[in-house]
Design a protein around this nucleic acid. Sequence first.
DNA 1: TATTGTTATACTCTATAACTATA
DNA 2: TATAGTTATAGAGTATAACAATA
Lengths: 159, 159
Amino acid sequence: MLRLETFLPWRLVVLASTVSENLASLYSERYGITIPEWRVLATLGQFGRMTARDVGAHARLHKTTVSRAVTTLCERGWLKREPNRADQREAFLSLKPRGRTVYEDLAPTALGFAARLVEDLAPEDRAALERILDGLGAKAAAIGSGSDNASSDSESARL
Amino acid sequence: MLRLETFLPWRLVVLASTVSENLASLYSERYGITIPEWRVLATLGQFGRMTARDVGAHARLHKTTVSRAVTTLCERGWLKREPNRADQREAFLSLKPRGRTVYEDLAPTALGFAARLVEDLAPEDRAALERILDGLGAKAAAIGSGSDNASSDSESARL
DNA sequence: TATTGTTATACTCTATAACTATA
DNA sequence: TATAGTTATAGAGTATAACAATA
């Protein structure tokens, strides 16, 4: 008998939605940034300097989505674009001081949010969560690549 | 340091997306149904007979989304609409034989998919997963209701 | 001929608003 | 005055296609 409340894919989607919405409200209310903008910011905060292509690969964003988010962030003066002289097709992106300031406010907020999420879990469950996420992620990817969708670009989900 | 790969909200969103896409491809390729249609089907398969309002509440779908999914499924002859004589504003929905047949093909497929997902997990991790999902779900809801979004209607997510 | 990145356009999905009918 | 449900419309968000520049 299929019961939605106990069906793992359903539970994952509902949980991820709730978590994602609550987190997004933190940074959108504070700085008016969208999800792609947040992802670009977080990626550049993590890696320092990289091309739009690599940002997209790491943040799982379509190249057109990256392009638009980067344009917006550059217009706000949060990002810097430096042409790569070794390959003029691409440019290196990095945070400008203003973007760095925003990132350094948001990153601890995000980490704090994640910490609150697990604070009531038993220590052994917290450890189990890491193992389980690894396991399920690998399994889901393996099941998926059985058909055709091996390397995807974008996002989208639900159920 | 915020690293996307180890950041719990990110991991949940990525995992839920992968799982959801793979599952959706199972029923969309087989029967050409959308996510809302699948949710309506699953809800009526589970409860037998209920109003559109209750389907939406259980399946977390907006009333306009339910309305359109129900219309489509009725046109296909998968669903039956019976006016409630005690309250003529609403109607009871239920599966017609054809819808029941589809449901009885898809439900085991979906359950099998979920079973494959966890088949490589250690038994104790499988048990932990249930506890963790309960815990995180409650916590995420609690954190969220701190602001204003107490009772929502819709979906949407990501990060 | 392939790749990075941009822009215009189209598409999908979901929500809002307005409405009907009933309570 | 409130609720169930429908329909039309609008709005996000994302993808496709076409393109420019470079390799």
